[in-house]
Design a protein around this nucleic acid. Structure first.
Lengths: 140, 140
DNA sequence: TATTGTTATACTCTATAACTATA
DNA sequence: TATAGTTATAGAGTATAACAATA
């Protein structure tokens, strides 16, 4: 179980609500991954492979070091969930792709991770639009 | 750098906005901790010690195993940021407390973690109240 | 010479199981 | 016997540095 990220000095109600949301979201994500015996990082990488892509692209997208991706992909490969195919255009590079089992597990994960869906579902369509607009504004 | 938790099947704009918020929040938290050479878990535990408390209370509050807290507190202690005092009421138990350096570093962390403050600051007072209400409703 | 990716290494987080000391 | 916390152990995430193969 991951530790929650806060609380810092939650000087306002809105900041506290943001913290609570992030805390519950992260815990739910981790729990959904654990149901499938995946680490959060493994579930995350698996979820990025709707299209196959290179190690470097994954690292940049996820904001971590390439050697980190190497390790995660290695474990996913050992689980039979992804393959590392040669890139015909550049023999240094590899293309990571989900296997059929990887597709299946990714789909099961999307089903198991109900938090965001459930949370949004508690709001009316108008409220959903309001929330989206407020979050977008807050994100700058 | 921690990997972002998604995207899952972000079937709506609101779900996508929630994901983006969580992603940016988590990255900002980690970056603020890294500025002070702390891990996110260390910054988190340090932030929970405005009042001193026992190992078990920390573990329950953070939703992780007690042995995990033992390790984190051990490292914080080695850094001179917390102490483990005997509990006069129960000689099995310990009370973890921030040192003066721990107080100082925690304060610097609260200053360095600007994300939630900045994000909320982009909204008017009315908008802040709306956001709070929507998030509370979404959290159920 | 620069880039893609891996390997080697080290540290942290995390849980489980077994243990000590105390209640 | 039950509880608070630690220790031992193992697997996973993460970054840095050094490296190989290719561009």
């Amino acid at each position: 179980m991951a530790l929650p990220s806060g609380p810092v000095t939650t000087s306002s109600e809105a900041e506290a609500a943001l913290f609570d949301l992030v805390d519950v979201y992260d815990r739910a994500y981790e729990a959904a991954a654990a149901e499938l015996s995946l680490s959060p990082a493994q579930a995350c990488v698996l979820g990025r492979l709707d299209e196959r892509r290179g190690m470097g692209a994954l690292a940049e997208e996820l904001g971590c070091d390439a050697s980190n991706i190497t390790q995660i992909v290695m474990r996913l490969e050992a689980l039979g969930l992804v393959t590392r195919e040669p890139n015909p255009r550049d023999r240094r590079a590899r293309l990571v792709a989900r296997t059929r089992r990887g597709d299946e597990l990714n789909h099961r994960f999307a089903t198991a991770f109900t938090f965001a869906r459930t949370a949004v579902g508690r709001l009316s369509p108008d409220e959903q639009d309001q929330l989206t607009a407020l979050l977008r504004k807050a994100l700058g």
